[in-house]
Nucleic acid binder design. Structure first.
Lengths: 212, 212
DNA sequence: TCTATATCGATTTTATCATATCGAAACCAA
DNA sequence: TTGGTTTCGATATGATAAAATCGATATAGA
């Protein structure tokens, strides 16, 4: 399967398919059709079929896709097979929650260490080291880290972000509720709680209004 | 300002504007133009202007929008002015991180209490009560809670989700990495870490490839 | 007072994504 | 073998959002 240009919206749906495919019990048919997937996830079957066609070519009429092949194809496409290393800045509650979440391994993410301005301990409960922020650059250079995760309060996010970029980081995953200014070749993925809340809040308002 | 139909993509951008507007120091001009906002956030000025026109009409040529009025208008539109109550299920690390995050108040979200199958304590450090899951329904009914936050492991998410709906919940914010099956009138907002990671991972792969 | 300029607001164009339709391939049953 | 059914894959249509363009208006400065 050669790589094609892929739209971001397709990309965002792939993890959903993957999660569902993995949740299917081992017994039962080793095949799964795009139609079945669509029904299970409540989506249009055409869309699912198109998405799958982007990343795999194991589909056969009347049969569907072999489940294991499909899983492998999606994982390979998403890069879950070769793990990427990351550092985390801000060992507060959220930071520690992320550090302790073992599920990231399945997505090919490996958080090597955490950094903080005032480390409360030198290791997390799970044994991940916590260093002082001053050691960040040295660590990133020696381990060739390309991804940084920001879990500091909003007012320090930009400064941390600048430091990460200075350390050679190319991709940033931020949980801080502020806009980050970065050069063009750096990708910032903003995990935006405020956005989600806005959508939810909107829905509730509409519901309440409707009831009247 | 009467309410218009608004697209979800506009809705998702509003919190960004709001955060930036609030970050501007109090001194300086009390006015801000759509053009200035666009430059600051690295967006197209037309898009910003259109978005602002949806929620406010205080814009004047050559002047821009009065900052305070604009902030109020966006907040009112997003419903940040009247707080909504919520319950949180799953008092693990992530759950506690969310419980302890004081920033939600600014978004009009008030987490009343947490529930768990095995509460480790009866209160969080911040004084929020943690109850056994069996008390969920009674609590929701008496407090007329409409929003539920799910921070349990994936394998229990669907069951928790069903319970919440049975309690009269209308909007669900889930951090579990699984698809949730719900009736049509219930809104599920999936805070999808896997999706974010896919986007980041994709970017890194492209970067590495490019270098060769 | 008058002109120039910055900005808003509306309209049109373009691009992107989602949905619908159609032919081809593969299995199943008669 | 043959017809029917299911499913894939490709093409075409439609909807939605982003971008570009243009006129109108209010302020600043001459």
């Amino acid at each position: 399967m050669e790589r094609k240009e892929i739209s971001k919206s397709v990309l965002k749906r792939l993890p959903g398919y993957l999660a569902y495919l993995k949740s299917i019990p081992e017994n039962g048919s080793p095949y799964i059709s795009a139609t079945a997937l669509a029904n299970a996830l409540g989506m249009g079957e055409v869309q699912v079929r198109k998405d799958l066609a982007m990343v795999s070519d194991g589909g056969r009429p009347k049969i569907g896709y072999p489940r294991s092949v499909l899983i492998d194809d999606i994982e390979q496409f998403l890069g879950y097979d070769n793990t990427t290393d990351a550092v985390l800045i801000g060992a507060g509650k959220l930071g520690q929650a992320l550090l302790g979440y073992s599920g990231f391994a399945a997505y090919g993410l490996n958080i090597l260490a955490a950094f903080d301005v005032a480390p409360a301990a030198d290791k997390t409960e799970d044994g991940k080291p916590i260093y002082h922020i001053s050691q960040l650059e040295g660590f990133c250079r020696t381990h060739k880290v390309l991804m940084g995760i920001i879990t500091v309060p909003g007012e320090h996010a930009q400064s941390v972000c600048d430091q990460l970029i200075a350390c050679g980081i190319k991709a940033i995953w931020t949980f801080a509720p502020t806009h980050l200014e970065v050069p063009a070749n750096i990708l910032v993925q903003h995990e935006n709680m405020a956005t989600s809340l806005a959508v939810l809040s909107m829905h509730l308002q509409a519901q309440i209004k409707e009831k009247k």
